[in-house]
Design a binder for these strands. Structure first.
Length: 610
DNA sequence: ATAGGGTTAG
């Protein structure tokens, strides 16, 4: 019997030399092979060892070795089998790995671990969890390697219940305070949205290292708690830990969400002082931060200084332009990206350009892009792409077409889709479709007050007060309250917040006096109060009063009286800017000759009619 | 023999 190696695929010269050295001809042609041959066993073991050091190990060599091991009667040997499984799992041959695994009678923890690792990295993630449970049923106890692997699978699936069970096991096995296990648990809880559980784990980790800090800062940042992320970052630096690129990227993204340019510039400065100024990853997060802080030009400057523009960088810049309503620039940049040809647009790029079209009212451009996404880039449109299209069609007044698209889309429309339609119905005062959209929204998000408010406003716009009252009653019955409007503005390195009708500010009197003064000038310039957006069915005078104390107006008035003439104002609001304020701020901007930017829940509104 | 963290949209 001959054992010469059959070449199915050419193997790398490196591997071929290696096999030649380790397998002298004599052993290759030997005809009496069995487990009783310790030399051969040793040979196989060494070859396996050497293959492990190759990066990447040759797939075909592994299969050949496997075949020879079986022929030599070593098929069920734990030691050799383990090594082979390890090789198979690092070369993504999970099928063979699992086959071998089933044949090994004595399975040690190491084999379970590397299999769980393979499935946690490449999926199917549920298999990793099944294997973890299998390991326990088999009578083994998970160790400090098992936990990070299985937790990665839990994170990928947002499998909170399984994650909690794993956490419980980590406590019982006393691995819970280990840095690796802790980081895995923190990340799992973060991905499941349970930041406070993550914090409990964080507080219990002994000998925290930089990764554990990063994980916890990221947990806050990814779950919309930027201030806590920053507090923890300061604590980390105060404790003498040296931040890494991952720390900076996470913290900059947290600052981006906190909408505070001063903090953003501070962290930018910090990154320079600590030697991260030239790092492309940090720069990309800065592009996003500057865009979200309302300073598109600074974002663009950082973007142009990137050594290499990767897809994330392009996306951050394109989306940054889109959210500020610079539709043409966003599309130009998209063209530039295609021309440069180094990166391929992905699904996020298309969310960016489609939303740019939506903000810019570029219906035909948007239609073309939607076609392009499927035809030229073979991207499977996601529910977000459909949402963008429905938003675009809706804004452009094509409500019927938008509704048809919802009925045609291949996946189940989510709240975002119906929300886009409802919003379009509000803009174009379409009660019938608005009712359809709200009905669906109530099914999907029964406790979101904003949806009810929107429909109520549509009724109010067309004078259907009984409809508005019906929706309001429904809200009261369900115990829902409209979120209180709040706007904030940063003046001289301090953030000031204003609620609707707020009189608590020390300068309140001056603020209202300034509003009065502006209103007089606005009316002279042709401004007429549009009372329609007011929620309640009250008389006109009262409506007028409610509109004029909207939180963004208070913030703007405060900004005007407390900054030098000509200073640009950036106001952030927790809800959407109402139509009347939109019109009023145009006049204000003109009268005081200032650029005013409002960041609301959806996008940025620029008023620059100086 | 095996290990944990990061940026874009929504």
């Amino acid at each position: 019997m001959s054992f010469s190696i059959k070449r199915t695929k050419p193997i790398s010269p490196q591997t071929s030399t290696l096999l030649h050295l380790l397998l002298p001809r004599s052993s290759l042609s030997s005809s009496a092979l069995s487990q009783s041959n310790p030399n051969l066993y040793h040979h196989y073991s060494s070859i396996l060892q050497s293959l492990t050091t190759l990066k990447p190990p040759s797939s075909s060599s592994i299969k050949q070795l496997h075949a020879r091991l079986l022929l030599s009667g070593f098929g069920s040997d734990t030691h050799l089998g383990t090594k082979l499984i390890n090789l198979y799992s690092t070369t993504h041959n999970l099928h063979y790995a699992l086959q071998l695994f089933d044949k090994i009678p004595k399975r040690n923890l190491f084999v379970w671990n590397i299999l769980i690792r393979a499935y946690a990295w490449h999926g199917p993630y549920q298999t990793a969890i099944d294997l973890y449970n299998g390991l326990i049923d088999y009578g083994l106890v998970p160790d400090n390697f098992t936990f990070p692997f299985v937790l990665k699978a839990c994170s990928a699936l947002s499998a909170l219940e399984t994650g909690r069970a794993v956490h419980d096991m980590a406590i019982r096995t006393r691995w819970v305070s280990d840095v690796f296990v802790g980081a895995g648990l923190i990340d799992m809880y973060a991905k499941c949205g349970c930041v406070d559980d993550a914090r409990i784990v964080f507080d219990g980790v002994s000998g925290r290292d930089v990764v554990v800090w990063n994980s916890m800062i990221g947990a806050y940042s990814q779950n919309g708690r930027p201030l806590e992320a920053l507090v923890l970052f300061r604590e980390m630096v105060g404790d003498g830990f040296r931040p890494t690129v991952a720390t900076l990227v996470t913290v900059v993204s947290a600052v981006a969400d906190s909408s505070n340019l001063k903090r953003g510039r501070e962290i930018h400065g910090f990154s320079w002082r600590r030697g991260f100024g030239g790092n492309d990853n940090v720069k990309t997060s800065l592009v996003d931060m500057y865009a979200k802080s309302g300073w598109v030009k600074a974002a663009r400057d950082v973007f142009e200084k990137l050594a290499e523009k990767k897809i994330v960088s392009w996306n951050a810049m394109i989306c940054g332009l889109a959210m500020h309503g610079h539709a043409d620039e966003a599309l130009d940049l998209f063209d530039e990206m295609k021309e440069e040809g180094r990166v391929i647009p992905d699904h996020i790029t298309f969310v960016g350009v489609l939303s740019a079209c939506s903000n810019g009212g570029l219906l035909e451009e948007g239609r073309k892009l939607f076609d392009l996404l499927v035809s030229s880039y073979s991207i499977e449109p996601t529910v977000q792409h459909y949402t963008c299209m429905i938003d675009l069609l809706g804004h452009s007044g094509e409500l019927e077409e938008a509704y048809e698209l919802i009925q045609r889309m291949p996946m189940r429309p989510d709240a975002g889709v119906w929300g886009a339609l409802l919003n379009a119905c509000k803009i174009h005062r379409n009660v019938e479709l608005g009712e359809v959209a709200l009905e669906k929204l109530i099914e999907l998000e029964p406790n979101d007050a904003g949806n009810y408010v929107l429909l109520s406003n549509i009724y109010a716009q067309v004078g259907k007060w009984e409809g508005a009252a019906k929706v309001r009653k429904l809200m009261t019955e369900r115990g829902l309250k409209k979120d209180i409007a709040c706007s904030w503005i940063e003046v001289k390195n301090k953030v000031y917040a204003f609620l609707v009708g707020d009189q608590s500010h020390p300068c309140s009197e001056e603020i209202y006096r300034e509003l009065d003064r502006l209103e007089g000038l606005m009316e002279e310039a042709g401004y007429v109060v549009d009372t329609v957006p007011v929620f309640h069915d009250v008389d006109d005078d009262e409506k007028k009063n409610m509109v004029r104390v909207h939180s963004e107006r208070l913030a703007i008035a405060f900004g005007i009286i407390s900054t030098p003439p000509g200073t640009k104002l950036l106001v952030t609001k927790n809800l959407r800017v109402c139509e009347d304020c939109h019109g009023a701020i145009k006049f204000m901007s003109k009268i005081v000759e200032r650029e005013i930017i409002i960041r609301d829940v959806n996008r940025y509104h620029h008023f620059k009619d100086v």
